[in-house]
Simulated scan of single mutants.
Amino acid sequence: MSADSTAKAAPPVLLAVEDSIARITLNRPEAANGMSIELLVALQEAILACHADRTIRAVLLYGNGANFCAGGDVRTFAARGEALPEYIRPATAHLQNVVGMLSRLAPPVVAAVQGFAAGGGGLGLVCAADFVVAAQSSKFMSGATRVGMAPDAGVSVTLQRIVGFRRAMDILLNNPTLTAGQALEIGLVSRVVPDAELHDAALALARQLAYGAPLALAATKRLLWNGLGSGFEACLPEEARTVSELSGTADAREGLAAVIEKRNPSFVGR
């Protein structure tokens, strides 16, 4: 079997459990771990397996390769053309299931971020994790409005609760690329470490959590997520409808093409 066929056969998400710590790895490095439906379905299954395994005391979320997750797979999106809403609807549903299940997992979730965490996929997972350890060179961006779409993965609620309304408005409408230091300053990430120390630091935090009292940690996590109010899960249907509608516009098709062609988009408002 050739190296290319082996890569194509590799599962989009890997799950391993050792010493009461589950390691979930996004495994599409050739696509910057862009979120295809196949990856989202596999990620749901991995999280469900963590829900079912009572021996798990902490969860580590990684991205294989140079980037944690660059968001949706823009080439797949662009290839759908005017039929993109038919693809976006199930993709958004799967993504919302993923972030909802992460927030309801009893064990705490630690995300280890390198490279880019962007779009509803990357930024959404960051906002849905309980702790975020970021490599010094990592970067964070929303990017949804840049391609004529709206944020998903519950980011329209979680981000503003994490960093505040004004900062969230700036991040989601102006799409700045935040450095790890800036992300730490506004509370988007928990800590920043040298690139070479990322996995060790994330694992050390997961081990520290795994040694804690599991019932107390799970209860405290639940209380904190409940503190977001009913707005989090109540917003998801409206968020999904908005993303689907915008994905069918000419502006969305233009935005995706501009990203792929590395040029500025020309939006016309339809």
Rank of each mutant, 00 (worst) to 15 (best):
L125R: 00
A128W: 00
A128K: 00
A128Y: 02
A129E: 07
D130E: 05
D130R: 04
V133R: 00
A135E: 06
S138Y: 01
F140R: 01
F140N: 02
M141N: 12
G143F: 05
A144H: 06
T145N: 12
V147N: 07
G148C: 05
M149A: 14
A150K: 09
P151E: 06
A153T: 04
S156M: 13
T158Q: 11
G164F: 08
R167L: 12
M169S: 11
L172Y: 03
L172V: 10
P176L: 04
T177R: 10
T179E: 03
G181F: 00
A183W: 00
A183E: 03
L188K: 00
V193S: 00
V193D: 01
P194Y: 03
A196Y: 03
L198F: 03
H199R: 13
A202Y: 02
A202G: 06
A204H: 06
A210N: 11
A210T: 11
G212A: 14
A216L: 15
L217I: 12
R222N: 10
L223R: 15
L223G: 15
L224Y: 09
L224D: 08
L224F: 06
W225P: 03
G227H: 10
L228W: 14
L228T: 05
S230A: 14
F232S: 00
L236H: 07
E238A: 15
R241N: 08
